[in-house]
Design a protein around this nucleic acid. Structure first.
Lengths: 329, 329
DNA sequence: TTTTAGCACTATATATTGACAAGTGCTAAA
DNA sequence: TTTAGCACTTGTCAATATATAGTGCTAAAA
């Protein structure tokens, strides 16, 4: 158990270090707490034994460890109200009646990225949660046409396909059959339903059924699992822990470009705001991910803020709370 | 006018420097050319006077200047045939009959990015070149629906809109009117046609015409000008001139995130492959952009490769030529 | 028992120096 | 016109000294 003073010291060190990434010495703390630097040093030693603080070298000041940040987030952090300016900027987005929900979400996270200098991510719902609502086909010229897939959650995907010597009539027949037979099916089960329920039937009624079946099969199997929106990628470069270390930048950027990061962020359990500090982020030991699910009517997804481990936790959590609230009503 | 030997020296220096960014001295060159280093030095001095070479300090070897690269690209560079491996990887993409043209283009430039470690860009045609083909509306629930816009070039855009107390019938009427009245209009003129040709008519036939008009007006005015696909953004970090200079990285990344880069790349005159070296790239003094337009039937756009000024010009130009050829037939 | 003053100690950052390598320009001879 | 030779310049690298910001520990004070 930490004494009250130890908690104060830990909090002060973390908040100072977040402001500027320089190891914090006992002297500065002692001035704030009105006790001698020796007293502070004793407590700092204790906090280090507990694994909450670290030294960069024998005679350096202390920096927070991963466990230190964790303790801070779980026990010490006070959520402050957003400042008026930040709130105003977000209100402009939320109050815009013209925007569909998904645009509101994307825009507000764009705003947050600009305000905080962190990277933000919006993920739509995954394909097994989306049910096929309807498909449409729009012919472009003799051989190519656009297939449009719409899900019950309003997710839209389109694909340009090419068909040789297939009559428009046959295409329309096929589309009609698909809409009748399998609308309501989860997107990621559509391929198999196509094979076992649609293929046998269009075989009877449609001439170029082989070609048509193949085309639609591909359309659905290419269906993007998720809408992904990453904003302010290069904001990471503004953070001093990265701007002096190219390898870290490379690592983070590669992770941001790879698909696994999405799974990583998606995979989540409950509806609360979650904080993944350092290695917990699965991105980099110096990165923190703060994220939450949102749900509004049929629409759901995940929003996340990616920043340095040395992130302004209180500010970001407050913002995310605020946005989540606004999205959900 | 350069002597033959001077051209040889310039070519050797540039090609050596492209392989490895170390200033090139007279000794190495003299070995290749079978003349003494003093002779080479005299010529190097001359090339420097002409502005084709530079020194990093008084007693360093030479590096190519912007004008040097320009001279090289315009006069000295020999296009070599692509190696079998590169060609094979691209053939796999081109030979895939299932893929629509736009996917073939995107995938092949993804492949090029991986092969070369440069960033690649695919831009679709601009909105004034796209004519409205058809719009479709698909209702999702009581208040929201998806509007889908398709252009004659096969470009698809969709938007989620919300309408309070508007009957499905009225929506369908409006859609029918729009399709009848203004299909064939260039996308960026649709908004004004809506106002002057559609608004007066739906005013008569449709109940909630005000709300409907506004919704469609917004859908079209938000129409993205262009499909933009940037691949391998972080490849820039692999280039030594950037990986040691955070400010350059920041600059390049910011440019890559800003919309002006798109205009920059789009704005172009003829159909040939163009090379923009250093400051000409409008991105960074150490960046080169190589780009070309493509055209295939109705579909057209621009493809570009962005790399260091110290780029493998011959290889990239060859590749772009090859891709362009394959796209256009 | 807790806090504090004082001191020895340690690691880092920074500037200074000297030796060395790589390259140049110029001159005079081939 | 080309080349050998030489004096000169600059950058790099390692070694050294100096200053600084912090620590831990001990013994005295509260």
């Amino acid at each position: 158990m930490l004494t009250e003073r130890q908690e104060k010291i830990l909090k002060l060190i973390i908040e100072k270090y977040i402001k500027e990434p320089i190891p914090v010495g006992s002297k500065v703390i002692s001035k704030v707490l009105k006790c001698s630097s020796a007293t502070v040093r004793n407590d700092m030693g204790e906090l280090e034994n507990l694994g909450l603080l670290e030294k960069t070298h024998t005679s350096s000041g202390r920096i927070p460890s991963e466990a230190g940040y964790r303790y801070y987030v779980d026990n010490l952090m006070e959520l402050k109200k957003m400042n008026a300016e930040d709130m105003l900027k977000l209100q402009i987005v939320f109050k815009n009646q013209q925007l569909a929900l998904s645009d509101v979400i994307t825009k507000s996270l764009q705003v947050i990225s600009d305000m905080t200098n962190y990277t933000t991510v919006v993920l739509g719902s995954t394909s097994h949660e989306n049910l096929l609502k309807q498909i449409e086909v729009i012919p472009i010229d003799d051989v190519s046409m656009i297939v449009i897939i719409v899900t019950d959650k309003g997710h839209v995907e389109h694909k340009n396909i090419k068909l040789q010597e297939v009559s428009l009539e046959d295409v329309k027949k096929t589309v009609g059959l698909i809409n009748n037979l399998i609308s309501g099916t989860p997107i990621d089960e559509v391929s198999s339903k196509l094979e076992f329920e649609v293929k046998p039937i269009i075989g009877k009624y449609v001439k170029q059924h082989e070609q048509l079946y193949n085309a639609f099969y591909h359309v659905f199997s290419d269906f993007t699992n998720q809408e992904v929106n990453i904003m302010g990628r290069s904001k990471m470069l503004e953070q001093p822990e990265f701007s002096t270390n190219i390898d870290k930048i490379k690592n983070v950027f590669n992770k941001l470009e790879s698909p696994e990061i999405i799974n990583n962020i998606t995979e989540d359990d409950d509806n609360n705001i979650k904080v993944y500090i350092g290695d917990e982020s699965n991105i980099d030991s110096d990165v923190t991910v703060i994220k939450t699910k949102y749900k509004n009517g049929g629409e759901e997804g995940t929003i996340a803020i990616i920043g340095p481990k040395r992130m302004e936790y209180d500010r970001v959590v407050s913002m995310l709370e605020y946005i989540k609230e606004n999205i959900e009503r």
